[in-house]
């Protein structure tokens, strides 16, 4: 579903690579957790996948489409929620969802059905006609999630999705991710909350200083580090510290 081959990105004026020689393959029907400390290169990687940044070298393909050469086709398969979703403040919730629905050409009855479903789940149907500027941070996050799911994306990409969600919404959202992959779709998300990743991810990748230092199921990571009983948090700390000492 998602393939990154030898992807590197260095910001202009920066001394080191934000992402370097990244190879990653995320398969159909899995929840993939992308972990790493602050500044590791998670958001830069996500921005390159969704077309917000251009890789200096390497290629990113989504559902078989090269993000750089066939951006429209690639984007049709993606639903994206950034870590801090800034949404047009002067549109109403419904107007925002209609804008997204039009771009993804979501058929009217399907659109209405999905909007109803997600907004009822997030308990915010009452606010649909209000300007987004009147929404709380959490409500904007939920609206962004609804917008990203409106076209039932084959690849659902989220940058730190749990930030801003109340416990009830976070619980619904975890179930929603699982239901989404059960339909044959894929979820790729970055997070700091290792507990969440441990609970719901089929596989995880750990990025540190722009390089992928580990990738696999949690059991595979445990085996590789020869710490069979370690929690993901312990593994994460060991792997990133190890990498620091090598670096």
């Amino acid at each position: 579903m998602l393939k990154l081959r030898n992807v590197s990105k260095k910001y202009r004026g920066a001394e080191r690579y934000a992402v370097q020689d990244l190879d990653l393959h995320v398969r159909h029907g899995e929840i993939f957790g992308f972990l790493g400390p602050n500044g590791a290169g998670k958001t830069t990687t996500i921005k390159m996948i969704v077309g917000l940044l251009r890789a200096d070298q390497g290629s990113v393909t989504v559902n078989g489409f090269d993000v750089e050469k066939q951006p429209i086709e690639a984007k049709r398969s993606i639903g994206f929620v950034p870590d801090n979703p800034d949404l047009y403040q002067k549109l109403t919730g419904l107007e925002y969802l209609n804008l997204i629905g039009d771009a993804f050409q979501v058929e009217q009855s399907l659109r209405a059905e999905r909007i109803q479903y997600y907004l009822e789940m997030f308990e915010m149907s009452h606010a649909l006609g209000d300007l987004i500027q009147s929404y709380s941070h959490g409500m904007q996050q939920k609206l962004a999630l609804t917008g990203a799911l409106l076209h039932e994306p084959e690849l659902f990409i989220l940058d730190e999705p749990m930030v801003g969600l109340d416990p009830k919404s976070a619980h619904f959202f975890r179930e929603l991710m699982r239901a989404h992959v059960e339909k044959g779709n894929t979820v790729f998300f970055s997070t700091h909350v290792l507990e969440v990743a441990e609970k719901i991810c089929d596989r995880v990748g750990i990025i540190h200083n722009g390089k992928l230092i580990a990738c696999g199921t949690i059991d595979e990571l445990r085996k590789d580090s020869e710490q069979v009983n370690d929690t993901l948090e312990k593994l994460f700390l060991e792997l990133t510290e190890e990498d620091d000492s090598i670096g």
């Binding site: 969802l97 050409q105 109803q116 006609g129």
Partner: peptide, 13 residues
């Protein structure tokens, strides 16, 4: 409360 079924229009991009 906004009635979603009647306001979720489909329009050219």
């Amino acid at each position: 409360k906004v009635e979603v079924s009647s306001t979720a229009y489909e329009r050219p991009v």
